[in-house]
Amino acid sequence: MSARAALAIRRWTPLSVAAVGTLAALAAALAFGPLFLDANALDRLTTLFIYVLLATMWNALAGYGGLVSVGQQAFFGIGAYAAIRLSSFGVGVYPALLLGGACAAALAYALSGFALRLRGGEFAIGMWVLAELLHLLVNLDRLIQGETGTSLIALNAFSPEHRRDYNYWLALASMGALVALVFALLRGRLGASVQAIRDNEEAAASLGVRVLATKRILFVVAGAGCGLAGTLYLATSISFQPATYFGVQWTAYMIFMALVGGLGTFEGPILGAIVFFLMESFFGATGIWYLVGLGATAVAFALYLPRGLWGTLEERFGLKLLPVGYRVAGAEGDGPARGRT
Protein backbone atom coordinates (compact mmCIF):
# COMPACT_ATOMS: atom_id res chain seq x y z
CA MET A 1 0.00 0.00 0.00
CA SER A 2 2.64 2.49 1.02
CA ALA A 3 4.73 1.73 -2.04
CA ARG A 4 1.78 2.42 -4.25
CA ALA A 5 1.02 5.64 -2.46
CA ALA A 6 4.60 6.78 -2.87
CA LEU A 7 4.33 6.33 -6.60
CA ALA A 8 0.86 7.81 -7.03
CA ILE A 9 0.39 9.27 -10.45
CA ARG A 10 -0.45 12.91 -10.28
CA ARG A 11 -1.20 15.24 -13.12
CA TRP A 12 -2.69 18.23 -11.43
CA THR A 13 -0.15 20.25 -9.59
CA PRO A 14 -1.29 23.41 -7.81
CA LEU A 15 0.53 25.34 -10.52
CA SER A 16 -1.31 23.64 -13.34
CA VAL A 17 -4.68 24.11 -11.67
CA ALA A 18 -3.87 27.78 -11.42
CA ALA A 19 -2.72 27.86 -15.05
CA VAL A 20 -5.86 26.23 -16.41
CA GLY A 21 -7.98 28.49 -14.23
CA THR A 22 -6.13 31.58 -15.44
CA LEU A 23 -6.49 30.51 -19.05
CA ALA A 24 -10.21 29.88 -18.68
CA ALA A 25 -10.60 33.28 -17.02
CA LEU A 26 -8.54 34.88 -19.78
CA ALA A 27 -10.72 33.26 -22.44
CA ALA A 28 -13.83 34.45 -20.65
CA ALA A 29 -12.42 37.97 -20.43
CA LEU A 30 -11.45 37.88 -24.10
CA ALA A 31 -15.04 36.99 -24.96
CA PHE A 32 -15.92 40.53 -23.88
CA GLY A 33 -13.17 41.90 -26.11
CA PRO A 34 -15.48 43.71 -28.54
CA LEU A 35 -16.73 45.82 -25.61
CA PHE A 36 -13.36 47.34 -24.78
CA LEU A 37 -10.96 46.72 -27.68
CA ASP A 38 -10.58 48.91 -30.74
CA ALA A 39 -11.07 47.65 -34.28
CA ASN A 40 -7.40 47.14 -34.96
CA ALA A 41 -6.86 45.16 -31.78
CA LEU A 42 -9.82 42.94 -32.60
CA ASP A 43 -8.49 42.24 -36.08
CA ARG A 44 -5.03 41.46 -34.77
CA LEU A 45 -6.35 39.19 -32.05
CA THR A 46 -8.53 37.36 -34.56
CA THR A 47 -5.39 36.65 -36.57
CA LEU A 48 -3.59 35.48 -33.45
CA PHE A 49 -6.43 33.08 -32.61
CA ILE A 50 -6.16 31.60 -36.11
CA TYR A 51 -2.42 31.12 -35.62
CA VAL A 52 -2.88 29.45 -32.23
CA LEU A 53 -5.44 27.15 -33.79
CA LEU A 54 -3.14 26.22 -36.70
CA ALA A 55 -0.10 25.71 -34.49
CA THR A 56 -2.02 23.51 -32.05
CA MET A 57 -3.37 21.40 -34.91
CA TRP A 58 0.01 20.86 -36.52
CA ASN A 59 1.51 20.00 -33.17
CA ALA A 60 -1.27 17.49 -32.53
CA LEU A 61 -0.29 15.79 -35.77
CA ALA A 62 3.49 15.97 -35.65
CA GLY A 63 4.23 16.40 -31.97
CA TYR A 64 1.82 13.75 -30.73
CA GLY A 65 1.03 11.66 -33.80
CA GLY A 66 4.51 11.65 -35.34
CA LEU A 67 2.90 12.75 -38.61
CA VAL A 68 4.85 15.48 -40.38
CA SER A 69 2.41 16.80 -42.95
CA VAL A 70 3.46 19.33 -45.58
CA GLY A 71 -0.12 19.34 -46.87
CA GLN A 72 -2.27 20.78 -44.08
CA GLN A 73 -3.10 23.64 -46.45
CA ALA A 74 -5.39 21.10 -48.11
CA PHE A 75 -7.80 21.40 -45.18
CA PHE A 76 -7.29 25.13 -44.84
CA GLY A 77 -8.28 25.57 -48.47
CA ILE A 78 -11.06 23.01 -48.52
CA GLY A 79 -12.66 24.54 -45.43
CA ALA A 80 -12.79 27.92 -47.09
CA TYR A 81 -13.93 26.48 -50.41
CA ALA A 82 -16.70 24.47 -48.74
CA ALA A 83 -17.92 27.60 -46.94
CA ILE A 84 -18.14 29.44 -50.24
CA ARG A 85 -19.92 26.56 -51.92
CA LEU A 86 -22.41 26.14 -49.08
CA SER A 87 -23.07 29.84 -49.01
CA SER A 88 -23.77 29.76 -52.74
CA PHE A 89 -26.34 27.05 -52.05
CA GLY A 90 -28.12 29.43 -49.70
CA VAL A 91 -26.75 28.27 -46.35
CA GLY A 92 -26.41 31.18 -43.94
CA VAL A 93 -22.94 32.60 -44.09
CA TYR A 94 -21.79 31.95 -40.51
CA PRO A 95 -23.27 28.45 -40.40
CA ALA A 96 -21.52 27.88 -43.73
CA LEU A 97 -18.22 28.91 -42.17
CA LEU A 98 -18.68 26.41 -39.34
CA LEU A 99 -19.79 23.70 -41.73
CA GLY A 100 -16.67 24.39 -43.78
CA GLY A 101 -14.67 23.11 -40.83
CA ALA A 102 -16.89 20.04 -40.66
CA CYS A 103 -16.33 19.41 -44.37
CA ALA A 104 -12.58 19.56 -43.82
CA ALA A 105 -12.96 17.04 -40.98
CA ALA A 106 -14.99 14.77 -43.25
CA LEU A 107 -12.31 15.03 -45.92
CA ALA A 108 -9.66 14.16 -43.36
CA TYR A 109 -11.65 11.13 -42.33
CA ALA A 110 -12.05 10.06 -45.97
CA LEU A 111 -8.32 10.46 -46.65
CA SER A 112 -7.13 8.91 -43.41
CA GLY A 113 -7.31 5.29 -44.53
CA PHE A 114 -4.88 6.06 -47.30
CA ALA A 115 -2.75 8.84 -45.87
CA LEU A 116 -2.06 7.29 -42.47
CA ARG A 117 -0.59 4.18 -44.03
CA LEU A 118 2.16 6.28 -45.57
CA ARG A 119 5.38 6.63 -43.63
CA GLY A 120 7.65 9.58 -42.83
CA GLY A 121 8.59 11.48 -45.94
CA GLU A 122 6.07 9.54 -47.98
CA PHE A 123 3.30 10.92 -45.80
CA ALA A 124 4.82 14.41 -45.84
CA ILE A 125 4.93 14.72 -49.61
CA GLY A 126 1.88 12.54 -50.19
CA MET A 127 -0.15 15.09 -48.22
CA TRP A 128 1.45 17.87 -50.22
CA VAL A 129 0.42 16.24 -53.49
CA LEU A 130 -3.11 15.76 -52.14
CA ALA A 131 -3.23 19.48 -51.36
CA GLU A 132 -2.02 20.31 -54.86
CA LEU A 133 -4.58 18.00 -56.41
CA LEU A 134 -7.43 19.45 -54.34
CA HIS A 135 -6.26 22.92 -55.34
CA LEU A 136 -6.45 21.96 -59.03
CA LEU A 137 -9.84 20.33 -58.58
CA VAL A 138 -11.24 23.37 -56.77
CA ASN A 139 -10.01 25.48 -59.68
CA LEU A 140 -12.24 23.42 -61.94
CA ASP A 141 -15.34 24.71 -60.15
CA ARG A 142 -16.88 27.42 -62.31
CA LEU A 143 -17.86 29.37 -59.21
CA ILE A 144 -14.19 29.80 -58.31
CA GLN A 145 -13.14 30.95 -61.79
CA GLY A 146 -9.76 29.24 -61.67
CA GLU A 147 -6.99 31.16 -59.96
CA THR A 148 -8.99 34.38 -60.21
CA GLY A 149 -11.04 33.24 -57.27
CA THR A 150 -14.21 34.67 -55.85
CA SER A 151 -15.54 36.32 -52.70
CA LEU A 152 -17.83 35.32 -49.90
CA ILE A 153 -20.32 37.97 -50.96
CA ALA A 154 -22.94 36.88 -48.46
CA LEU A 155 -20.77 38.45 -45.74
CA ASN A 156 -21.85 41.83 -47.08
CA ALA A 157 -25.17 41.25 -45.33
CA PHE A 158 -23.36 42.32 -42.16
CA SER A 159 -21.85 45.71 -41.53
CA PRO A 160 -18.04 45.73 -41.25
CA GLU A 161 -18.31 46.46 -37.50
CA HIS A 162 -20.60 43.53 -36.83
CA ARG A 163 -18.54 41.32 -39.03
CA ARG A 164 -15.43 42.20 -37.06
CA ASP A 165 -17.11 41.27 -33.78
CA TYR A 166 -18.59 38.05 -35.13
CA ASN A 167 -15.30 36.99 -36.70
CA TYR A 168 -13.54 37.69 -33.45
CA TRP A 169 -15.99 35.61 -31.45
CA LEU A 170 -15.97 32.84 -33.99
CA ALA A 171 -12.18 32.72 -34.00
CA LEU A 172 -12.01 32.80 -30.20
CA ALA A 173 -14.65 30.09 -29.89
CA SER A 174 -13.07 27.87 -32.57
CA MET A 175 -9.65 28.21 -31.05
CA GLY A 176 -10.94 27.63 -27.53
CA ALA A 177 -13.03 24.64 -28.52
CA LEU A 178 -10.33 22.86 -30.50
CA VAL A 179 -7.50 23.60 -28.08
CA ALA A 180 -9.73 22.31 -25.27
CA LEU A 181 -10.67 19.29 -27.36
CA VAL A 182 -7.03 18.38 -27.99
CA PHE A 183 -6.30 18.93 -24.30
CA ALA A 184 -9.18 16.67 -23.26
CA LEU A 185 -8.25 14.02 -25.81
CA LEU A 186 -4.64 13.93 -24.71
CA ARG A 187 -5.66 13.63 -21.08
CA GLY A 188 -7.98 10.78 -21.87
CA ARG A 189 -7.24 7.31 -23.15
CA LEU A 190 -5.92 8.78 -26.37
CA GLY A 191 -3.11 10.45 -24.47
CA ALA A 192 -1.81 7.15 -23.14
CA SER A 193 -1.95 5.62 -26.61
CA VAL A 194 -0.19 8.63 -28.08
CA GLN A 195 2.63 8.35 -25.59
CA ALA A 196 2.99 4.65 -26.17
CA ILE A 197 3.11 5.18 -29.93
CA ARG A 198 5.58 8.00 -29.61
CA ASP A 199 7.91 5.88 -27.52
CA ASN A 200 7.76 2.88 -29.81
CA GLU A 201 5.12 2.38 -32.43
CA GLU A 202 5.67 -1.35 -32.95
CA ALA A 203 5.76 -2.09 -29.25
CA ALA A 204 2.58 -0.07 -28.76
CA ALA A 205 0.83 -2.01 -31.50
CA SER A 206 1.87 -5.29 -29.92
CA LEU A 207 0.45 -4.13 -26.59
CA GLY A 208 -2.91 -3.66 -28.23
CA VAL A 209 -2.75 0.09 -28.78
CA ARG A 210 -4.81 0.82 -31.85
CA VAL A 211 -2.19 2.82 -33.67
CA LEU A 212 -4.19 3.65 -36.78
CA ALA A 213 -7.33 4.59 -34.85
CA THR A 214 -5.33 6.84 -32.55
CA LYS A 215 -3.64 8.60 -35.43
CA ARG A 216 -6.95 8.90 -37.23
CA ILE A 217 -8.47 10.85 -34.35
CA LEU A 218 -5.55 13.29 -34.40
CA PHE A 219 -5.69 13.54 -38.18
CA VAL A 220 -9.42 14.28 -38.26
CA VAL A 221 -9.21 16.79 -35.43
CA ALA A 222 -6.29 18.50 -37.19
CA GLY A 223 -8.29 18.51 -40.42
CA ALA A 224 -11.23 20.13 -38.66
CA GLY A 225 -9.02 22.71 -36.99
CA CYS A 226 -7.13 23.64 -40.15
CA GLY A 227 -10.43 23.78 -42.06
CA LEU A 228 -11.92 26.11 -39.45
CA ALA A 229 -8.80 28.24 -39.62
CA GLY A 230 -9.33 28.47 -43.38
CA THR A 231 -12.93 29.57 -43.01
CA LEU A 232 -11.94 32.08 -40.33
CA TYR A 233 -9.30 33.49 -42.63
CA LEU A 234 -11.94 33.69 -45.34
CA ALA A 235 -14.27 35.49 -42.97
CA THR A 236 -11.63 38.13 -42.31
CA SER A 237 -10.41 38.56 -45.88
CA ILE A 238 -13.68 37.81 -47.75
CA SER A 239 -11.89 37.03 -51.00
CA PHE A 240 -10.96 33.48 -51.92
CA GLN A 241 -8.03 32.93 -54.25
CA PRO A 242 -7.16 29.23 -54.43
CA ALA A 243 -3.40 29.81 -54.67
CA THR A 244 -3.44 31.75 -51.40
CA TYR A 245 -5.47 29.22 -49.47
CA PHE A 246 -3.81 26.11 -50.85
CA GLY A 247 -0.33 27.63 -50.56
CA VAL A 248 2.31 25.60 -48.75
CA GLN A 249 3.23 28.73 -46.77
CA TRP A 250 0.46 27.86 -44.28
CA THR A 251 2.24 24.67 -43.45
CA ALA A 252 5.51 26.58 -43.25
CA TYR A 253 3.93 28.88 -40.65
CA MET A 254 2.53 25.94 -38.71
CA ILE A 255 5.91 24.19 -38.68
CA PHE A 256 7.58 27.38 -37.54
CA MET A 257 5.13 27.98 -34.70
CA ALA A 258 5.18 24.40 -33.46
CA LEU A 259 8.96 24.10 -33.69
CA VAL A 260 9.77 27.39 -32.04
CA GLY A 261 7.21 26.93 -29.31
CA GLY A 262 8.03 23.31 -28.67
CA LEU A 263 6.96 20.31 -30.69
CA GLY A 264 5.23 17.71 -28.58
CA THR A 265 4.51 20.03 -25.70
CA PHE A 266 0.95 21.20 -25.26
CA GLU A 267 1.74 24.79 -24.32
CA GLY A 268 4.56 25.22 -26.84
CA PRO A 269 2.56 25.86 -30.02
CA ILE A 270 0.49 28.50 -28.25
CA LEU A 271 3.69 30.27 -27.27
CA GLY A 272 5.03 29.67 -30.79
CA ALA A 273 1.94 31.28 -32.31
CA ILE A 274 2.43 34.33 -30.13
CA VAL A 275 6.11 34.51 -31.14
CA PHE A 276 5.16 34.17 -34.79
CA PHE A 277 2.44 36.80 -34.41
CA LEU A 278 4.89 39.23 -32.82
CA MET A 279 7.58 38.53 -35.43
CA GLU A 280 5.06 39.15 -38.17
CA SER A 281 3.94 42.39 -36.51
CA PHE A 282 7.49 43.69 -36.15
CA PHE A 283 9.35 42.23 -39.12
CA GLY A 284 6.59 41.37 -41.57
CA ALA A 285 7.20 44.66 -43.35
CA THR A 286 10.75 43.63 -44.20
CA GLY A 287 9.20 41.20 -46.65
CA ILE A 288 11.60 38.69 -48.06
CA TRP A 289 14.19 38.86 -45.30
CA TYR A 290 11.43 38.13 -42.82
CA LEU A 291 10.65 34.90 -44.67
CA VAL A 292 14.34 34.00 -44.90
CA GLY A 293 14.51 34.57 -41.16
CA LEU A 294 11.52 32.32 -40.54
CA GLY A 295 13.09 29.47 -42.49
CA ALA A 296 16.48 29.89 -40.85
CA THR A 297 14.93 30.11 -37.37
CA ALA A 298 12.98 26.92 -37.98
CA VAL A 299 16.16 25.11 -39.05
CA ALA A 300 18.05 26.43 -36.04
CA PHE A 301 15.34 25.32 -33.61
CA ALA A 302 15.04 21.87 -35.20
CA LEU A 303 18.79 21.40 -34.87
CA TYR A 304 19.72 23.07 -31.63
CA LEU A 305 16.56 23.47 -29.57
CA PRO A 306 14.38 20.58 -30.70
CA ARG A 307 12.12 20.90 -27.66
CA GLY A 308 11.43 24.52 -28.56
CA LEU A 309 11.14 27.45 -26.21
CA TRP A 310 8.54 25.87 -24.01
CA GLY A 311 10.10 22.44 -23.96
CA THR A 312 13.37 24.00 -22.85
CA LEU A 313 11.71 25.99 -20.08
CA GLU A 314 9.82 22.89 -19.03
CA GLU A 315 13.01 20.85 -18.86
CA ARG A 316 14.90 23.47 -16.93
CA PHE A 317 12.23 24.30 -14.38
CA GLY A 318 10.09 21.16 -14.36
CA LEU A 319 7.28 23.44 -15.37
CA LYS A 320 4.03 21.96 -16.59
CA LEU A 321 1.11 24.33 -16.80
CA LEU A 322 -1.25 22.29 -18.91
CA PRO A 323 -0.45 18.74 -17.94
CA VAL A 324 -1.26 16.20 -20.60
CA GLY A 325 1.49 13.78 -19.58
CA TYR A 326 1.68 11.70 -16.47
CA ARG A 327 3.61 12.75 -13.48
CA VAL A 328 4.82 10.23 -10.99
CA ALA A 329 4.40 12.02 -7.71
CA GLY A 330 6.99 9.90 -5.88
CA ALA A 331 9.60 10.89 -8.44
CA GLU A 332 9.02 14.60 -8.09
CA GLY A 333 11.96 16.73 -9.01
CA ASP A 334 13.03 14.31 -11.73
CA GLY A 335 10.84 16.27 -14.08
CA PRO A 336 7.87 14.88 -15.93
CA ALA A 337 7.98 11.14 -16.19
CA ARG A 338 7.80 9.67 -19.65
CA GLY A 339 6.02 6.46 -20.37
CA ARG A 340 9.20 4.44 -20.40
CA THR A 341 9.40 0.93 -19.12
Binding site: G120, I255, G295, A298, A302
Partner: peptide, 9 residues
Protein backbone atom coordinates in the same frame (compact mmCIF):
# COMPACT_ATOMS: atom_id res chain seq x y z
CA UNK B 1 11.98 16.79 -42.95
CA UNK B 2 11.71 19.92 -40.82
CA UNK B 3 15.22 21.17 -41.48
CA UNK B 4 15.15 20.56 -45.23
CA UNK B 5 11.77 22.26 -45.41
CA UNK B 6 13.23 25.24 -43.58
CA UNK B 7 16.20 25.24 -45.95
CA UNK B 8 13.79 25.24 -48.90
CA UNK B 9 12.12 28.38 -47.61
Amino acid sequence: LLTTFGLAI
